[in-house]
Every structure is written in structure tokens, then in C-alpha cells.
């Protein structure tokens, strides 16, 4: 399965909405740190990693979590690994 960037971006935004249903995603700057932009805490971020792993089937080792702290960075990371 090869995923397009658009598919991955959609997945990231949808799962973000599930993890933080009380956050306002409209107008989110995709290059902003999610922890600052949406007050995403470590539990929220871990839940996002779980959801993306399940949905896309892409391995995300814990040491790489810091590479997925913005929407853009997460999309780039997942795209590179989607092969």
C-alpha cells in the first residue's frame, strides 16, 4: 500500500481531532508545535501515536516521538516511512 501525502495529512488531522475532541483544530498552523498550539500533553501525544500506528500500520519507535510534534513534521516522517 502506498499512501499519498494527502491521505497521511488527513489521517493525522482526523486522529488529532479524536485525541483532543475539545481542541479547536480550525486555523491550526501545521508548522506549530502541537503542545503549544493545542495544549497536547504527553498522554494526548502518546494516544495520537497509537492511533496513527493502528491506522497507517507504520512503526513509530518511542525515540522518534520528538520528530512528530507538528502536523507537518508528522506528515513528513510518516510519508518517509510509508514506503
Amino acid at each position: 500500500m502506498s499512501l499519498t501525502e494527502q491521505q497521511i495529512r488527513t489521517a493525522v488531522l482526523e486522529e488529532l481531532g479524536n485525541v483532543a475532541p475539545d481542541a479547536e483544530l480550525d486555523g491550526l498552523d501545521p508548522s506549530e508545535d502541537l503542545r503549544d498550539a493545542l495544549d497536547i500533553d504527553s498522554m494526548d501525544h502518546l494516544n495520537l501515536m497509537i492511533a496513527l500506528h493502528k491506522r497507517l500500520g507504520i512503526e513509530i519507535p518511542e525515540r522518534d516521538y520528538p520528530k512528530l510534534l507538528t502536523v507537518d513534521a508528522a506528515v513528513a516522517y510518516l510519508l518517509a516511512r510509508a514506503g
Binding site: 504527553s42 498522554m43 502518546l46 501515536m49 497509537i50 500506528h53 493502528k54 513509530i60 519507535p61 518511542e62 525515540r63
Partner: peptide, 17 residues
């Protein structure tokens, strides 16, 4: 924690809290 989490899928990982 790092050792333990490395061998586990994300849903089985622990937070230090």
C-alpha cells in the same frame, strides 16, 4: 522505561507519570 517501551507497540507503552 526506554528499554521496556522499545519492545512494545505504542498502545502498551508507559508514561513516566
Amino acid at each position: 522505561l526506554a528499554r521496556r517501551n522499545a519492545e512494545r507497540p505504542p498502545e502498551a507503552r508507559l508514561l513516566i507519570s
